[in-house]
Design a protein around this nucleic acid. Structure first.
Lengths: 152, 152
DNA sequence: TATACTGTAATAATATTTCATACAGTTAGC
DNA sequence: GCTAACTGTATGAAATATTATTACAGTATA
């Protein structure tokens, strides 16, 4: 579920990076290395949260609907997979009389929920702009001085 | 992988809770609601990190080897599943010429690694003692005034 | 009206997680 | 020494979650 967050950030970053800030699900899918259906599902969620606009029909696709410097990763995270840091599996058994077994699931839920807030606090400090900056830092490291042909 | 953390905390908390701080993998497995093999694997890791002592043979089992108030959840977390917050799936394709596609995996890795530090920072503030306290709070809420028979 | 899109459902393929079984090695007590 | 009750670990099966594929209805453009 957390890889959906990666995909969402990737798509938003790519839209921010592209000169016209627009792309189809097929183009996004190829760039992300996944399939268009997955992209459409995730972008559909991002649309509901207002990060992108969509246009159906010929010449349609997805268009960035926000300022890269103003959208934090925490907002994207919550939109896509907030509350998913706790594991699916739960420990103990509520039917048991033992204090530990009966309540451990509940207690751990609390810890995971609170820890997630700290997690989000970090994401809060980073925006789509930060992502673009880090991408450009990669470029400087791997191909200092060279110019790339960008094949979207 | 993060549910292993839950199991580890559960086992350590139970050992801390039990009067003699000792239990076999079978007893732990039943209390946690899982199988002894899983418990032994996790406890084996906790042993290597020094949180518990083990004794093989008749009358053997696991024994707490630390002070509940001094062991933070962050230490347990790192012992069991540090570095597992980033998803298995990676976005993009390093072979692509596009800056975004080529480097997104690397950039997201960085974010996940740093976010995990914030996550651990929260766990740092909580110890096995905290877990026991929260368990007792559950008891107060659900069965105020009643005495429980504890069937380990 | 044909074409190129999104939105979404349904299902297949794959990967991960959890469980079950088995057995070698260890220790204690008889 | 022998047996019984443990841990440590390997291996494979079962259950579950994730990702990919296919299909098609709805929409906008030319």
């Amino acid at each position: 579920m957390r890889s959906e967050f990666t995909v969402a950030v990737h798509c938003l970053a790519l839209l921010a990076y592209l000169p016209d800030h627009r792309a189809s699900s097929e183009l996004l899918a190829h760039n992300v290395s996944t399939n268009p259906t997955r992209i459409r599902k995730i972008m559909s969620t991002l649309k509901k949260s207002g990060f992108v606009k969509t246009k159906e029909g010929i010449g349609g696709g997805y268009e960035l609907n926000c300022q890269p410097a103003e959208v934090t990763l925490a907002e994207v995270y919550r939109s896509i997979c907030g509350g998913t840091l706790k594991p699916h599996w739960s420990s103990g058994n509520p039917e048991e009389k033992c204090l530990v077994s009966a309540n451990m699931a509940l207690v751990m839920d609390g810890f995971f929920r609170e820890a997630e807030l700290y997690y989000e606090e970090y994401l809060e400090r980073n925006t789509l702009q930060t992502v673009l900056e880090r991408l450009r830092q990669c470029q400087q490291k791997t191909a200092r001085g060279e110019t790339h042909v960008h094949e979207y």
